[in-house]
Simulated scan of single mutants.
Amino acid sequence: MCGRFALTATPEELMELFGLLEADDFPARFNIAPTQPIIVIVAADRAEPGSNLPERKALLVRWGFTPGWVKDPRKFPLLINARAETAVGKAAFRAAMRHRRILVPASGFYEWRRPAKGGGEPSQAHWVRPRKGGVVAFAGLMETWSSADGSEVDMAAILTTDANRVVRHIHDRMPVVIEPEDFARWLDCRTQEPRDVTDLMVPAAEDYFEAIPISDKVNKVTNTGPEIQDEVAPVIPAAPAASKARADDRDDDGQMSLF
């Protein structure tokens, strides 16, 4: 599951990685939480002159997905994640999987290893980042929800898959990572149907991430400084994660925020 992440890259770094024509200035963000605005990358409508890559652009959307057919979002759970294995068949995500696939830039994400019920041990937060540094692109889905008065809200969810070896001892799910060579295929919703990109929705390579134990400062959304990523001595010994289902593993209505 992905319930918090960070983006500390510069606009110039995003422009270079994603082939953007421009990117507005934005501050480093160390503790991005559901319902907050996030930067996403989408395919533009036309090809960039002189380039064999599709033009892409950056948008600011809300993290938290509400299907377009929902009439009252107050009566529908906010979906921050979507299971990659089942999203194409779920009513909430089916249209977005076919027509509105996006990339979510991040510097890494946060995950918590939670002890077995009644174990008496505190949970342990981890900062999970690319081992080589830089920006990672999570696979995402976008929707525009329209209210009865005509106002619109752009929103997004992050796709998750089975955790790889590095993350598995913390949690059994992790965000889907799209490599740069696959950006164009993932974002191409004109010629690439969901079945054509299922091979991209797999766990990241075993050595892609490293997991660093951190303090519980990240638990509070009001803590937004770089110190929340400082390494601490782990309070829970590394062990396989419990096999019981998490919120991210339930059916459609279970793919919601932890908060």
Rank of each mutant, 00 (worst) to 15 (best):
P175C: 04
E152Y: 08
R168C: 01
V70H: 05
I38E: 08
V88F: 13
R98D: 10
A6H: 08
F138G: 04
D45T: 09
G120S: 12
R129Y: 00
D172V: 08
A148P: 00
D188S: 01
T10L: 08
G254R: 06
A241H: 14
E231T: 13
S51D: 13
A211V: 02
A204P: 06
G68R: 05
C2T: 06
K71F: 00
Q255I: 05
G50H: 12
D249G: 14
G134R: 04
D248W: 13
G108T: 02
V202D: 04
R129F: 07
I39M: 12
A84F: 02
E143R: 08
Y208T: 04
V221M: 09
A28D: 07
P203R: 04
I80G: 06
A84K: 01
W69E: 09
E231I: 11
P34D: 03
A163C: 11
T66V: 15
V235G: 14
G254I: 11
N31R: 07
N81C: 05
F26E: 08
A6P: 12
A211P: 09
N81K: 07
G140M: 02
M142I: 00
L21E: 15
H171L: 10
R62S: 14
L141M: 05
A91M: 14
M174T: 02
E121C: 08
V232W: 04
A28G: 08
I212P: 07
A106T: 04
A95N: 15
L14M: 15
E55C: 03
T224Y: 06
A33Y: 00
P203E: 02
A96Q: 12
A47T: 14
P73V: 09
F138T: 01
A9C: 10
P180Q: 00
N164V: 01
K90R: 15
A157K: 03
R62D: 12
A47Q: 12
A163L: 02
A87W: 08
E181V: 11
A233H: 09
D149Q: 10
S147R: 13
A163I: 00
M15L: 01
V104W: 09
T224H: 11
I39C: 02
F93N: 07
V177G: 00
E181K: 14
V136H: 03
P240Q: 07
E152N: 13
Q192P: 00
T10V: 03
L79D: 01
L187T: 04
S107Y: 05
S215Q: 08
G119W: 07
V70N: 06
P203V: 02
T160D: 04
G254T: 14
R113K: 15
G119C: 04
S51F: 07
T35M: 14
M142E: 13
E179V: 11
A157I: 05
E231V: 12
K244C: 03
I236G: 02
R114G: 08
A211T: 03
F65Y: 15
M155H: 05
Q229E: 10
Q229A: 14
G108M: 00
P122M: 09
R98I: 06
V167S: 10
Q36Y: 01
V235C: 10
G50D: 10
S107E: 01
P175I: 09
F138Y: 03
V232M: 05
